[in-house]
């Protein structure tokens, strides 16, 4: 994709401009702006408490964004929530599957929530379970799955309605190394083959690849947004870990540099 096409609103899977949010007196996000181009894997990097989950809640309209603008594939989540929600698939930090239902029932329920008829929903559910390697467990209860398998079901669910923007909030938390690598490979493949725009929120620096875009969120502020190499050159560091430490350290040292 060339630079010119990135300017077109539809080329941006997600566009966030000047978004702030507070819980009472406590400010959680301050003037956050970022973009996730279609066909990109963008890492939202931040420590626990940085504001990642709050940002996800705003994007998915669980909270109302009263300041700034959030657009999904060109649709404003506040003015056109339905169109925006149709274009996004979400994997939340906490597991959101019904443990007492089977994999197929969970996915069929989600398909219904997106308006798919019974047969069409189940057909898509089976196709996606096949893709994530769990079709043989389709009729088993979610309760019986491992953490990694449950995450794959959640990714399948997030893809069920054919979204153009995929949001994953700490999707690998609690998984062993093998499961983590499998999940990351699956999502990177989605970017490469289907041109999805992915926003991958994590606090794990080793999940970042050199080709990724990085948005560094610290105490509710975006400290950096750009390419992997740009972050290194901006801080003069040789590793992302060092760059992260340098940038967040500088922000903490600056008086009033971050919201409480």
């Amino acid at each position: 994709m060339n630079a010119a096409s990135h300017d077109h609103p539809a080329a941006r899977a997600l566009s966030i401009a000047d978004v702030s949010h507070a819980f009472g007196e406590r400010r959680a996000l301050a003037d956050v702006s970022l973009e996730v181009p279609a066909g990109s894997f963008t890492v939202l990097l931040g420590l626990n408490g940085a504001g990642k989950s709050t940002l996800f809640a705003l994007i998915t309209r669980l909270y109302d964004n009263v300041s700034g603008q959030i657009r999904v594939c060109g649709h404003d989540v506040r003015r056109a929530p339905s169109a925006a929600l149709r274009q996004m698939g979400v994997v939340f930090q906490s597991r959101a599957l019904d443990a007492d239902l089977s994999l197929l029932q969970n996915l069929a329920y989600h398909a219904a929530l997106h308006g798919f008829g019974f047969a069409a929903g189940r057909a898509r559910a089976m196709a996606l379970l096949d893709i994530v390697g769990l079709s043989d467990k389709a009729r088993e209860r979610v309760r019986a799955l491992s953490g990694g398998q449950a995450r794959r079901v959640e990714i399948a669910r997030a893809l069920l309605h054919d979204p153009r923007c995929l949001l994953l909030d700490e999707a690998t938390v609690g998984l062993d190394i093998g499961a983590r690598e499998g999940i990351i490979a699956l999502v990177r493949d989605l970017v490469a083959r289907r041109g999805l725009g992915v926003l991958w929120a994590t606090h794990l620096i080793d999940e970042i690849a050199p080709s990724d875009r990085i948005v560094l969120l610290h105490k509710g502020r975006v400290l950096y947004s750009g390419g992997h190499d740009g972050l290194l050159s901006e801080t003069g560091a040789t590793t992302i870990r060092d760059a992260f430490t340098a940038m967040t350290g500088a922000a903490d040292a600056k008086p009033g540099g971050a919201p409480a």
Binding site: G115, R124, I131, V132, L186, L190, R193
Partner: peptide
Amino acid sequence: MKPVAMDSLAPATESFRSRSG
């Protein structure tokens, strides 16, 4: 994990429009 073959998944045949009717 099984090799991913996303190409095998056809786009949703029921359009957004019909699904929101």
